[in-house]
Design a binder for these strands. Sequence first.
DNA 1: GAATAATCGAGACGGTACGTCTGGTCTTGCA
DNA 2: TGCAAGACCAGACGTACCGTCTCGATTATTC
Lengths: 234, 234, 234, 234
Amino acid sequence: MQSSTPAGRAGRPRSAAADTAILAATRAALVDLGWSKLALGDVATRAGVAKTTLYRRWAGKNELVVDAVAELFDELELPDRGSLAADIEGVVLQFAAILARPEARSGLMAVVAESTRDDALRERIRTSIVERQKRLVLEGRARAQARGELPPETDATEAARTADLIFDVVAGAVVHRTLVSARAADEEWVRGLTQVLLWGLAGAAGEPGDRGDGGDGGGVGPGGGADAEPAAPR
Amino acid sequence: MQSSTPAGRAGRPRSAAADTAILAATRAALVDLGWSKLALGDVATRAGVAKTTLYRRWAGKNELVVDAVAELFDELELPDRGSLAADIEGVVLQFAAILARPEARSGLMAVVAESTRDDALRERIRTSIVERQKRLVLEGRARAQARGELPPETDATEAARTADLIFDVVAGAVVHRTLVSARAADEEWVRGLTQVLLWGLAGAAGEPGDRGDGGDGGGVGPGGGADAEPAAPR
Amino acid sequence: MQSSTPAGRAGRPRSAAADTAILAATRAALVDLGWSKLALGDVATRAGVAKTTLYRRWAGKNELVVDAVAELFDELELPDRGSLAADIEGVVLQFAAILARPEARSGLMAVVAESTRDDALRERIRTSIVERQKRLVLEGRARAQARGELPPETDATEAARTADLIFDVVAGAVVHRTLVSARAADEEWVRGLTQVLLWGLAGAAGEPGDRGDGGDGGGVGPGGGADAEPAAPR
Amino acid sequence: MQSSTPAGRAGRPRSAAADTAILAATRAALVDLGWSKLALGDVATRAGVAKTTLYRRWAGKNELVVDAVAELFDELELPDRGSLAADIEGVVLQFAAILARPEARSGLMAVVAESTRDDALRERIRTSIVERQKRLVLEGRARAQARGELPPETDATEAARTADLIFDVVAGAVVHRTLVSARAADEEWVRGLTQVLLWGLAGAAGEPGDRGDGGDGGGVGPGGGADAEPAAPR
DNA sequence: GAATAATCGAGACGGTACGTCTGGTCTTGCA
DNA sequence: TGCAAGACCAGACGTACCGTCTCGATTATTC
């Protein structure tokens, strides 16, 4: 990765340009062909590179596509839009925009599907994509705390759990909306999702796990008790 | 669809047993090999059927897998567990249990990935799986309305939109949790998701789109204002 | 309904028209596709007949083609053209004309090739084609004997051997000329063949097997002595 | 053709051993299965080679079999047996011996049959087999001329025509005898054929095309005059 | 500046699955 | 019982990719 090749000394060094060209060619091929018809020989040709060069750097199609797709998500940013709700909506719209691009649509779900049978691949996806982008949740929460919109954390474990839930809900919902339901994740929809998320988290936070449900069949809302409204989250 | 098939008479009729055997063999092969290594010749062999028979009935691997997986989701039921929250938790756990089975994990995401490049396939997925299971949302809502947990609908369009959002959030979150985050969608997690969902919907319903955000930077939760809490959902 | 169904009584009799249609369709398919791409399903379709009907009457492709081709050779005739040489030339030209037709070219050699591994097929060819057309040799010889061009037979065995040799030479040479050398068996070439045949048989007849060769190393074979030319027939 | 192949450098060179193995495997498969049941996948397996390797070098079954069979005929030799007649008999017996081998029987006629619909294939047969073995006729004639058994050529065109006729007659007769008539081309039969050939050519040579037939209706051909027997060659 | 060593391009290699086609057989319902 | 229709099992077809390998030609570092 470094130019000064400290460890591996002798011999011709690997071409740095090749990596870039291969990943770009992979995305181009995903656009043209989709994952299942993507052929590594074809990718090599598009990149102006020999098949050997490609296999020397990636173990196979799955690993290559993960890396090619992961780069796309590094574009995500979290500019300060003034409120937590606005920040969320902004980043969700960005996320939806990426998922609207064919190189992401084709590739992402396919490698997730593959990862159900390949632990190393799943770990690679988690490292390169999921955990890497979870920074957005953490940044957003920190910023909201600084604004006073959210209370500081008290329990680190709980905080992590909440972050994971947020990520699963947001990422899952956007993916399902765009890929399965095949409808645009437009501003209106994103607003709805954000509403649900914020109200939901606020409400759930006030009711930490007390689920004596059953008894109170009447009430609606998580807690049932009409007046036991969660004190507006503080 | 009819047994008397008045039109297509001549010739030997197709074996009904073959369809069953092929779909079962497909699921078995998904368990053993996963989607990407699933070979139709192998499926035919497992089903005790010739390859031609298989190709006479399905256009290809994608269509076959959609049908094989779709049958899995027909197992979902919505027994009356006494409250909306309990009903949701029950069906989400069932859904998670299906997604924990390898034949579903491997196949579902793969066909979704393929569907990003094949409109007919996406439509088939929507028809066979998504719309077909959306019945659960509708049944659950109707039952909650009968219990008095939810108000009756006033706006059909809005009701449909809400149902879609619920489906996207629930299905998406469970899929993301189990396949991407690769953690079990256990009772605790499902309870958290249900809480968020119910509070979120309740809150969002009370705030139809008023997003004068920004002004009130302090408060958290969608509306910000602590006391402007949505009246506990009715 | 029945034309003469003598033996098989009960049930619907076989359609006589079907046989004719199938053989004609076979020849048409041979013209269009050649032997190796000829498909029995296609033949059945061309004949307006079900595959079952075809298989009920012929065991397979080989048998069918033999019958279809055999009919072609029944066209051969031996009109009296005044001399043995002219008779031979006439029938050889007819034979060459048949071999120039694609349905014969494609089919004949193919079934011969197949017959090298199938004794029943070889026997069928011999019966339906070879022995059936050997009549031409016998008729021609008888006619020549009646004219006084050839002496009457004295030895039946020898006569049969000679007839076989003639047939092998004539049929073999014409086939080789037209199919392997791929040149027209035109009048000039046929005249040359006839000359060789008549001179050869005459010469060989005068030398029944005396092959004490070796002694006279110089003058060998007919052409040995330059001046010992056989008196040119007049 | 050269080992230093100056032009086509790059890439792994083709294995020379593969060609040999494939052709041998083809002949073995011809022996076991015959042409029509010969499967190229099976040939590849027998040769210890992948199907792709086979298809990279031969366009299809026909081309492969032509090459495999052509090698068989390269065994033919023309040792000096002292006289033209003996030389002919020797080589004809060799030819018959090759045709008695199943790999030749099955393959040769089949490719000839195929060549009736494929000009390129016919040309390949002519180049690889027919013209290649015509050397035997030319060698034999030259040797006979050196011995004084035959006069030197005066007309090159006529000489070529005669050589072609000889080849058609000999090859055709042997093939017809062994494959169609299905009887051994043993010494006795070959002697008869040689007699006919030598007498025929000698007689025909003395009568260069003068076929004023019809005029002399009685004495036709060599056999016409009973006493006009060609002087028995000595 | 030579030796060493890893990379590069090209392309052949052994495999495996593809989706199609044909060969023969069997199963319908009508005649 | 024959027949048209067409589904059925079996298996070869020729193609496309896979991931590996063998080449000769670069291009660096190290001696």
